[in-house]
Amino acid sequence: NRHQFAPGTFSGVLQCLVCDKTLLGKESLQCSNCNANVHKGCKDAAPACT
């Protein structure tokens, strides 16, 4: 399954699913299917969408 990433819209601090570093809103993407949160630069390394 493929992620459907869109710019993240969340408040607070989240961790990137891929690199475990802190996500800030402006550099984040969120999958509309599984709600995975990743950095824009990490999206290609994200595991399959669940």
Rank of each mutant, 00 (worst) to 15 (best):
G8P: 14
C49E: 05
C31R: 01
D20S: 08
R2Q: 12
T50Y: 00
A48E: 09
N37S: 08
D20V: 04
L14N: 03
A6D: 09
L14D: 12
L29K: 03
Q4W: 03
D20F: 02
H39G: 03
V18E: 05
K26C: 09
N1Y: 14
C16E: 03
L29P: 01
Q15V: 10
D20W: 04
S32F: 06
K21N: 06
N1K: 09
A46H: 08
A45Y: 07
S28E: 12
A45M: 09
G8D: 06
V38G: 01
K43E: 14
T50V: 07
F5C: 01
G41C: 10
F10T: 13
N35L: 05
C16Q: 01
A6I: 15
G25T: 11
F10R: 08
A6C: 14
G41W: 08
F5T: 04
S32Y: 08
K26S: 13
A36P: 01
V13G: 10
P47K: 10
L14M: 12
H3I: 04
V38Q: 01
F10L: 10
D20L: 08
D44L: 10
A48P: 15
A36Q: 13
L14H: 12
N1I: 13
N35H: 06
R2Y: 15
T22V: 11
C19Y: 00
E27A: 02
K43R: 10
G12F: 02
K40V: 13
E27R: 00
A45F: 13
L29F: 10
Q30Y: 05
G25H: 11
C49Q: 01
G41E: 15
C34L: 00
L14G: 10
V13A: 09
T9H: 06
K40M: 14
L14Y: 11
A48V: 07
A46R: 09
C19M: 00
P47H: 07
L24F: 06
P47S: 14
R2M: 15
N33W: 07
C19E: 01
K21M: 08
P7N: 04
F10G: 15
E27M: 03
C42A: 02
L29A: 09
Q4L: 08
N37Y: 09
C42S: 02
H39L: 01
G8W: 02
K40A: 15
Q15G: 06
Q30G: 12
V13C: 15
F10Q: 14
F5V: 02
N37I: 06
S28G: 14
Q15M: 09
A48T: 09
L17K: 14
F10E: 15
K40F: 14
K26G: 14
D20R: 06
L23Y: 11
A45C: 11
Q4G: 05
V38H: 01
K26I: 13
V13W: 09
N33D: 12
V13I: 14
N1V: 05
C49M: 03
N37R: 08
G12C: 03
P7I: 05
L24V: 13
C19V: 00
G41R: 03
L24I: 11
G8I: 03
S28M: 13
